[in-house]
Simulated scan of single mutants.
Amino acid sequence: MHTFNLTPKDVELIDEAKKKITSLYEEDKHHVGAAIRMKTGEMISTVHIEAYIGRVTVCAEAIAIGSALSNGYKDFDTIVAVRHPYSDEEDRRLRVVSPCGICRELISDFGPECFVIIEIDGELVKVEIGELIPLKYTRS
């Protein structure tokens, strides 16, 4: 896997996601925050929506992409998701988390050149979305 080092703007994006989930965290409602940066530099940050029935839950990355698209943005540069610990967890650190398979598809569909910040072997790195969804199907 080809990885890229984080830039100061990437650290700012992570901080934006952390601020969003820290300010809006509610037990059993929101525990993941995401932030997406456009190629023009604008950022949008969101939280995920948890539902009692898991299939209704919507990931923070999906909400970030939807919010960006709804506000006229479509040239995505980088996205990151951050997980807030539940109240009964001993480890209180906010951690960068990798997008789920559905979010990988969504990021790839709407931002085929988008970078994703993930943790690999304890180190935060940036990867191209194509690295996270290799051999993606294409329309014929």
Results as ranks from 00 to 15, higher is better:
I49D: 10
A17R: 02
F115Y: 14
K19R: 13
H48A: 14
K29H: 12
M43N: 11
I133Q: 01
F4R: 07
S45K: 11
I129L: 01
I36C: 11
P112Q: 10
V82I: 13
E90P: 07
S67H: 06
P85I: 04
E113P: 00
E113Y: 13
E123V: 08
C100Y: 02
T138A: 11
V127E: 02
H31W: 12
V47W: 04
E123N: 13
A17T: 05
K18V: 14
K126L: 05
F115C: 05
G54F: 05
E119T: 15
V125E: 02
H84S: 08
P8R: 10
L135F: 10
K19M: 02
I63N: 06
S45R: 05
K136C: 11
L132T: 01
V125L: 02
G122E: 04
K20N: 10
K29G: 04
C100A: 11
I118K: 04
K19I: 03
R95C: 07
H84I: 03
V116K: 02
S108W: 04
D28N: 15
E123R: 15
L24N: 13
V82Y: 07
T78I: 07
R104W: 00
K126R: 06
D77Y: 12
L135T: 01
F4E: 13
D88R: 12
M1D: 08
I102Q: 09
V80F: 09
R104H: 01
V97I: 14
E90F: 14
E61K: 00
T7A: 07
K19F: 01
K74S: 15
V125H: 02
D75L: 13
N5T: 08
S140P: 15
L106R: 04
L132S: 03
D28C: 12
K74N: 15
H31D: 07
E90L: 14
I102T: 14
K19W: 01
E123A: 06
R37N: 12
D91P: 06
K39V: 10
L6C: 00
S70Q: 09
G66M: 07
C103H: 08
S140R: 07
E113C: 00
V116S: 03
T7E: 12
A62I: 11
M38H: 10
V56R: 00
P99Q: 08
V97D: 04
H2M: 03
C114N: 11
D10H: 08
D15H: 12
E123D: 05
P134V: 03
C59S: 11
L24T: 14
F76A: 10
L132R: 01
S67Q: 12
K9N: 13
V80W: 06
S108D: 06
K126G: 03
G41N: 11
V127S: 02
G122L: 01
E119R: 09
T22Q: 10
H48K: 10
A51Y: 04
G41H: 11
Y25C: 05
V56S: 05
K29L: 15
Y52R: 15
E27Y: 12
D75H: 11
N5E: 09
K126F: 00
I21F: 09
G101Y: 09
K9M: 08
V96M: 03
F76M: 09
